[in-house]
Design a protein around this nucleic acid. Structure first.
Lengths: 196, 196
DNA sequence: GTCTATAGTGCGATAGAC
DNA sequence: GTCTATCGCACTATAGAC
């Protein structure tokens, strides 16, 4: 719990990356978190994994494709967390698994998540992204139930934003992972009106 | 309520911008929100206000200075909201004024706030920024009281992240301002354990 | 799958006239 | 406070050898 592999299983969606592509995506995500999407160049990505720009271009034809692939890879990990929660036997257990899964994921990706979610380029890309909307709707359904509507959407968006934004916030940047995890979980559950 | 001037009064901190500087800052904030900090060039800022790059350089010597000035301008508006709340006669009224003030600010800057707060460059800049920490501490004091500690910090960071992140979230991007405002206020108050 | 080499563009930044 | 003009550099992207 807390190390780096949350794994993106062969869920449906975009095709699985090759080993070379996975290295590019991992480097890109790390650099995006440090310098932002617009502040990261192909040269930096190439340097990070120790190859030339041309080698990177062999895998992805444009920088945009790398950004998309990186965003979709992160979405896949969230999808996996949602899918795991969905396989729980009861509604109550599913909801508990989802909340703690999201908190774990946010702590694990502490300096990555918020940057991706709040980057205007990626945000614009996700607005009409089918799988993104699907994952968010399934997430909402587990958290709140079948009653949709704007209120449920705001509640879902707020919880995601609260968790993914809080881990990066300059105000808690010094805080230990475990302290942050415990407190996030407690507050997230309270936000949802759950005991604990 | 909800239009564009929340105003940055002559609070202490960095010196007030001139008219030309204010135009640059406004253009920069708008472009940062659309393309990210790293994705915004001086040429884009110059074009946006209809001057040349050299004119922009006359006001700020580097791009970094523009980023800092823009971030500090936004911090000043938050400072003003906190200061207004602090002038309320009772603790209860101060807290209410603060929560609704922050929600109003987030709605007003709907496509601006989150980008700034979550940009890694600006985040790194704010970590050791004196005024930022001061504003956050005052904010925390109004929200939670004098008991400090990690739990209070996480709670504060989470509320700020929830509000500023939710307004930008792709999942609620289609929602009407007023619907979003009402729901955010309701949920924010609930998060704090307030009636309403 | 990786390399060298290079085309073409836009960047941040500066000098100096008005 | 704004302009024209320019420097040097890093960028995205491509071609072609290994």
């Amino acid at each position: 719990m807390g190390s780096s592999d949350v794994a993106s299983p062969p869920t449906e969606g975009s095709e699985a990356p090759t080993a070379a592509q996975a290295r590019i995506i991992a480097a890109a995500l790390d650099l995006f978190a440090r310098y932002g999407v617009g502040g990261t160049s192909l040269q930096m990505i190439a340097d990070e994994i120790g190859v030339t720009k041309a080698a990177v271009y062999h895998q992805y034809r444009t920088k945009d494709e790398i950004v998309v692939a990186a965003a979709e890879a992160e979405l896949a990990t969230l999808d996996a967390v949602v899918a795991t929660a969905e396989s729980e036997p009861s509604r109550k257990r599913a909801r508990d698994a989802l909340v703690s899964g999201i908190v774990d994921l946010a702590i694990d990706r502490r300096r990555t998540v918020g940057t991706l979610l709040n980057d205007p380029v990626i945000g614009g890309f996700f607005v009409d992204h089918e799988r993104f909307r699907d994952v968010m709707h399934r997430l909402q359904r587990l958290l709140i139930g079948d009653d949709a509507g704007p209120q449920a959407s705001v509640r879902t968006a707020m919880l995601i934003a609260a968790i993914s934004g809080a881990v990066m916030h300059p105000f808690v940047v010094d805080l230990d992972d475990e302290v942050l995890r415990a407190e996030l979980l407690r507050l997230a559950r309270r936000f949802l009106g759950l005991p604990g």
